[in-house]
Computed example of a mutant assay.
Amino acid sequence: MIGLGNMGKPMAHNLLQAHDHVTVYDANEAVTKEFKSTNAIIGESAQKAAAGADVVILMLPNSQVVEKVVLGEQGISQEMKKGSLIIDMSTSAPSSTKIIAEEVENNGLYFLDAPVSGGVKKAVSGELTIMVGGDESQYERSLNVLEPMGKEIFHVGKVSSGHTMKALNNLLSAAHFLATSEVLVAGNKAGLEPEKMLEVINASTGRNHSSETKFPNFVLNREFNSGFSMDLITKDIELALEITKEFKTPAFLSSTVYEVWRLANKLSEGKYDHTEMAKFCENWGDVTLNYTEEEKITHEKRNS
């Protein structure tokens, strides 16, 4: 397992519970040291960690890093034995994934893209949604490795299909978070309580993952700690728009959604959790969405 960030670390812990002989590596030595108290084998470098492995999982920041780790001067593909499998679980650009997969396969290796959805909470519980692109026989081969990390695992098509699906899913997620923010701000300004609005929305046709999960757990309690940054979701929307451009499909709303997130991200200097988009809308509406004291007690009891 190469890449032990917010998502990769809990995913690696779930792998360790299910499998022996798991080697872990991260460029940040402090993170790697956290695994010394586990049964993990600590890799000295990405290349040495991958040497001799049957399966290498990548959970890295972006396509550029994936390409460097796989195909660079010290790339892992140079040391892996023929017939081994690389699974890229990062959120990468589909166009880059196709190029990397072709190079890998020319070296006698196999490649799957298998990005995830569900955030840090689901990474910890091992209940991620995993969307896999690549050869079906390799997908079947990967299941015993993916199952400890995911609850819902889908084979969505040929290589790069997983990354395409992930980018489009995150575009939709960003759109409904922004729309829910605007609706709650308007309703609150008109005198409605946000918690009551969510109750109605979640029993009606406007319900979505943001209204059901993100606003109750990260916004109204003012914690804004989903573990997924505004910078990352903005980059994911950009990947999705690249897909619409490549295939010449409509992106009327998607383009607007991107521009709003890009502005909010610029103002936040890429430092904030993506749920702080709600603050961006609050500032425009001159309101603050939060629980009343009574609602806060009810929410805490519900989650305890």
Rank of each mutant, 00 (worst) to 15 (best):
K9M: 15
M11C: 08
A12V: 04
N14K: 07
A18P: 11
A18I: 08
D20K: 12
D20V: 02
H21Y: 09
V22P: 02
V22C: 08
V22W: 14
V24G: 00
N28K: 15
V31A: 08
T32N: 05
K33Y: 10
K33R: 14
K33V: 10
E34N: 04
E34P: 01
F35Q: 03
F35Y: 09
F35H: 02
S37E: 14
T38V: 05
N39D: 14
N39A: 13
A40M: 04
A40Q: 03
I41P: 00
I41D: 09
G43E: 05
S45D: 12
S45E: 07
S45C: 08
A46T: 00
A46F: 02
Q47K: 14
K48L: 12
K48F: 02
A49Y: 01
A49N: 01
A49F: 06
A51M: 07
G52N: 08
V55H: 01
V56Y: 00
I57D: 01
M59G: 05
M59T: 06
L60F: 04
N62M: 12
N62W: 03
S63F: 11
Q64D: 14
V65R: 02
K68F: 01
L71M: 14
G72A: 04
E73G: 07
E73W: 13
Q74G: 04
Q78S: 11
Q78H: 14
E79R: 11
M80V: 00
K81P: 00
S84Q: 05
I86Q: 02
I86V: 07
I87Y: 07
I87F: 08
M89A: 15
S90L: 08
S90H: 04
T91V: 11
S96G: 03
I100D: 12
I100F: 04
V104T: 13
E105N: 09
G108Q: 02
G108Y: 04
G108M: 05
F111W: 07
F111A: 08
L112P: 00
D113P: 07
D113R: 12
P115A: 01
V120F: 13
V120N: 13
V120R: 15
V124E: 15
V124P: 00
V124R: 14
V124D: 06
S125T: 13
S125F: 08
G126R: 11
E127R: 06
E127D: 15
T129A: 13
T129D: 04
I130N: 01
G133V: 06
G133T: 03
E136S: 14
E136K: 15
S137M: 14
E140I: 08
R141T: 10
S142R: 06
S142M: 08
S142I: 08
V145P: 04
V145S: 09
E147T: 15
E147F: 06
M149E: 05
E152L: 11
E152D: 12
I153E: 10
